[in-house]
Amino acid sequence: MKILAAMSGGVDSAVAAARAVEAGHEVVGVHLALSRMPGTLRTGSRGCCTIEDSNDAFRACDTLGIPFYVWDFSDRFKADVVDNFVEEYEAGRTPNPCLRCNEKIKFEALLDRAIALGFDAVVTGHYASVLRDADGRVELHRAADDAKDQSYVLGVLREDQLEHCWFPLADTPSKALVRAEAEERGLGVAAKPDSHDICFIPDGDTRGWLAERIELTPGRIVDQDGTDLGEHQGAHAFTVGQRKGLSIGHPAPDGKPRYVLQVRPKENRVVVGPGELLEVDRLVGIRPSHAGAPHPAVATGEWIEALVQVRAHAEPVPARVRWSERDGAPAVEAELAGSLRGVAPGQSMVLYVGTRVLGQATIASAHSSAWNPEALDAAV
């Protein structure tokens, strides 16, 4: 097969490309230039897609003896990921830019161009499995190494995209073995730190980064009953579950810490309250997609037993799930058997049955049986 290896400059993508070469395929390496500042340098394990990463990707391809190219997707990355990130925060939501990047850049823009150029598949260093059901249709599953499993951030992939995806690291039991293999193959990235945090905010200061891009508008901080507690300088600077930086100036009557329960951009209010009110047991998601053939319950609307995961490395929670409608558009409802803490609109909920990823949806609302926000609506 003719394979395009997406080379991030890290050890995982380098080993994935090496395995594709070893399997006898015609492999071409490509690094995606996503930064609008081509001189950007990497800081330890912070950031990715920098000029240093591009150089590491080139050296890995040189070692493997395969062609190497750099594709400039910086304009599309800015529009589809960076600008979207700002817009979501302006709307009071907490987005996941990694899912957005996988959806719009790595497995849409990249894959579309690869297919147009005659490639059969795209190889990446993600830890996830693409399997086939009894009818031969593709399914997305968790990787063998639960600690490194990345199926959550791939939950946005559609069936037609999975048909052209290959994840060679799917069955590797641990990251340590991948590093050892890279060392044996003479790949210079064997000991390179994993990247983390948001790649376009390499210093990790999301609040400061947003403050330069979103106009600060003072508003009120209220408690869960609507009682006015003070003023904030910009609602976008707060996220659900936040404890520090509230600047209320006086403690709660019971002396316990307050947490951000809701960010309400239309009213420019931040709602705070006790930690126990962060526990939610019902989620509603919008813009659902299916990772493979849709589950039969999508058509019937019946409840099914599934697992719900709301963060990349969080424990999944058992739930009853059904596909329905919200304001005339497709939606997903999940009634949790337990509870999840600090879930914010804008996060993605990925649905599983066993190891299989059914798909995902963007959380529109999270509900707690311990607190009814409608009472707050009446109070304010």
Rank of each mutant, 00 (worst) to 15 (best):
P253H: 04
L340R: 07
H290D: 15
A191N: 07
L229C: 11
L117H: 07
A299Q: 13
D160I: 05
A23I: 03
D203N: 06
D120Q: 14
P218A: 13
D205W: 03
L246Q: 05
E279V: 01
G285N: 03
G338R: 09
V308Y: 02
G234R: 06
S45G: 12
D112A: 12
S368K: 04
V260K: 05
V138E: 09
H164W: 06
R220D: 15
L261C: 01
V156L: 11
S339W: 14
P274Q: 09
V357G: 05
E139T: 14
K192A: 05
R220C: 01
G255P: 07
R282W: 04
Q224M: 01
S129R: 15
A6C: 12
P97H: 02
E52I: 05
L41P: 00
S324Q: 10
L336P: 09
A375P: 00
E184Y: 06
N96W: 08
A344S: 15
M349A: 13
S129C: 13
L131M: 11
A337K: 07
L157A: 11
D146R: 13
N102F: 03
C49F: 15
P38V: 10
A366P: 01
L376E: 03
S339K: 14
R158I: 01
G219V: 13
C165H: 00
A109G: 06
Q233K: 07
A23P: 01
H31S: 13
F119D: 05
D194P: 12
I51G: 00
I3T: 15
C165M: 14
A291K: 02
S13G: 08
L32C: 14
A375T: 08
G92F: 04
G234W: 05
P253F: 07
E90V: 06
A128K: 02
V130W: 04
E103Y: 09
